[in-house]
Simulated assay, not measured.
Amino acid sequence: MSVQAFGQWLYTTPAAAAIRETVWVIPTVQAIHILSIAVLVGSALVSNLRLAGVFAADEAPTTIIRRYLPWMWCALAVLLLTGLLLIVAEPGRTLNNAVFWTKMALVLFAFVLTLVFQKPLLNRQSADNGPDRSTMTKSAAWLSLGLWLAVIFCGRFIAYT
């Protein structure tokens, strides 16, 4: 089954019709989706700026990561759920859109990058949290920020492509 055929089938399901026909559902889901991206990107901003050595240099990276990483995971879960609802409601708008698939690839890449560079910090001892960060970690922090910003831009441009 092609993506287009799957999208057409999904559009005709009772769940998709219920989401589309209930006046308040799509605006509510979109609002929650946008608030979740704000939480995710805000948490990523603080965490990555700390890893880059730009922000909260007086606190150990582990402290910042422990504080904000759970917010990132919760926001990502909400984003995936609300995004899935939006796809079910209007599959033709997303599943056939190259910008949507670019956004999904960027989210996956940013997610993996976060796992690789932030999650291990949760297991380190406080003595290992000095202000010196490797060039690789700093570069990954800036790359992560760039990826999340690209996700936002792609999300906005889905409506225009």
Results as ranks from 00 to 15, higher is better:
P70F: 13
T28F: 01
V99K: 04
V54K: 10
W24S: 11
E59T: 02
Q4K: 13
A75T: 02
A17C: 04
L145T: 03
E59P: 02
L147E: 09
A18V: 09
G92I: 13
N129V: 01
S2G: 07
Y11R: 14
T135G: 10
P61R: 03
A44E: 06
Q4F: 12
Q8F: 01
G42Q: 13
L122H: 07
G130H: 11
T12Y: 08
A89R: 12
S36K: 13
M72Y: 15
W101G: 00
Q118N: 09
P120G: 00
L115D: 11
L35P: 09
I26G: 00
F157C: 02
L49G: 00
V112W: 15
D132G: 05
P27N: 12
P91V: 01
Q4D: 11
L10G: 02
I19H: 06
Y68R: 15
P70N: 15
L81D: 10
A52Y: 12
C74M: 12
A38Q: 09
S36N: 01
L95R: 08
T62F: 02
L113R: 13
R66A: 04
A98C: 05
Q125V: 14
Y11T: 14
V23Y: 09
E90L: 13
A159Q: 11
P14K: 15
P27Y: 03
A15M: 10
I34S: 03
A77L: 15
Y160M: 05
A140F: 01
L45N: 01
K119E: 02
Y160Q: 00
V78Y: 11
W9H: 13
L35C: 11
F117L: 02
A159C: 04
Q30Y: 06
A127G: 10
V88I: 14
G92Q: 12
M136P: 01
A105K: 12
T13H: 03
G155W: 12
T94Q: 12
L106H: 09
L40E: 08
L95W: 12
I26D: 10
A56R: 11
Q118M: 10
V3S: 00
I26K: 06
Q125G: 05
A16T: 11
Q8A: 06
W73A: 02
S36I: 08
W9S: 09
A52V: 15
N96V: 15
V39D: 01
A105Q: 06
G130E: 05
I65K: 04
F153S: 09
L122D: 05
M1N: 11
V41P: 00
V151G: 03
A105C: 05
W71M: 09
T102M: 05
M1C: 08
I87Y: 13
F100Q: 00
S2Q: 08
K138F: 12
K119R: 15
V39T: 14
T82H: 06
W9F: 08
W101T: 04
A52D: 01
E90F: 09
L80P: 13
A75P: 00
A52F: 10
V116F: 02
L108W: 03
V39S: 06
H33Q: 04
L51C: 05
L115Y: 08
L85W: 13
A18I: 09
N96D: 04
V112E: 07
W9R: 10
S2A: 06
I26A: 03
F100Y: 07
I32A: 07
F157S: 00
A127Y: 15
G92W: 12
M104H: 07
L113N: 09
S2N: 15
